[in-house]
Amino acid sequence: MSRAESLPKSDTEPEPDTESETEPGTEAEAGTGANAKSAARPGGRGPSRATTRAGVTAEPRAGRTPSPLWTLGLFRNELVTTFRRWRTIALLGVLAAVPILIGISIRVETRGGSTAGGGGEGPAFIAQITNNGLFLVFTALAVTLPFFLPMAIGVVAGDAIAGEANAGTLRYLLVAPAGRTRLLLTKYATTMTFCLVATLVVAVSAFAVGALLFPLGELTTISGTRIGFAEGLGRALLIALVVSASLTGVAALGLFVSTLTNSGIAAMATTVGLVITVQILDQIPQLHALQPYFFSHYWLSFADLMRDPVYWDDLVRNLGLQGLYAAVFGSAAWARFTAKDITA
């Protein structure tokens, strides 16, 4: 901030003639130099303008050079805008409700003393919840990761650019000028933040419900060793982070789809549809050769964090694959969006 303060107060009113005389063909370079030069252009008119609209006009001309910090203003604003939307709050509400439902149903089912999921197949860790409420966090993440979380991400990512185009606000953002790369990065960063927040909402809600309805304490890992509650909590947090990182691929894919269309609904539907399709394909044995490249293939590898020692192979493969998706579809989105004619 203080840096901005010290910025060129000097280019407020230079004697404009010398400066504006410069050959207008040469100022190809964008940014500060060109900016300052054009600011000096209207020459003789400057003073009269400053007097008519005193406070507002006279001052900001000095501050026209962008400060690096200010460019984050759009990101902050985007975050606030996204998380204040009804739609976002509703999505988070649905995600928070999932662990509550699971917790209550297990509690009701096991009231007689039987163990949950006894005999039958259920989501990972579900049998352990009655022993330790912390396992509800793992179960809830395992339940939401295949569908609820990617769906929520698909909605937010798919709407990112297409929704703005649909509302017509995209053109005003770009004319502001937000800058296409900057806007795209802002949108991706916001979607990633949403991934993290959505995962944490599930985890926190699950932990709260687990703590309320079931005992807490030492827990047994998949490998059979016992770890303390504090370490268990640490692993739960780590798992939440891995789960949200598992969603970066979907986020990049959604953002790319979002740059292809001017309809927010179409982009959301396409992204969510892709998520479902890929998961169905992942179940077909004949596609065995392709499956390691599906973004959802290693999603449930987060359970390996509950082994002792942790089994890293699939976790690393998962993160690598997500990085690949982010790179490929991120570049595709960038290439598409920066070359696109904005007609909406």
Partner: peptide, 14 residues
């Protein structure tokens, strides 16, 4: 406020 935040040359203090 949003449109103004989109402009990197706009001073957030004003």
């Amino acid at each position: 406020v949003r449109y103004d935040a989109a402009d990197p040359a706009a001073d957030p203090r004003t």
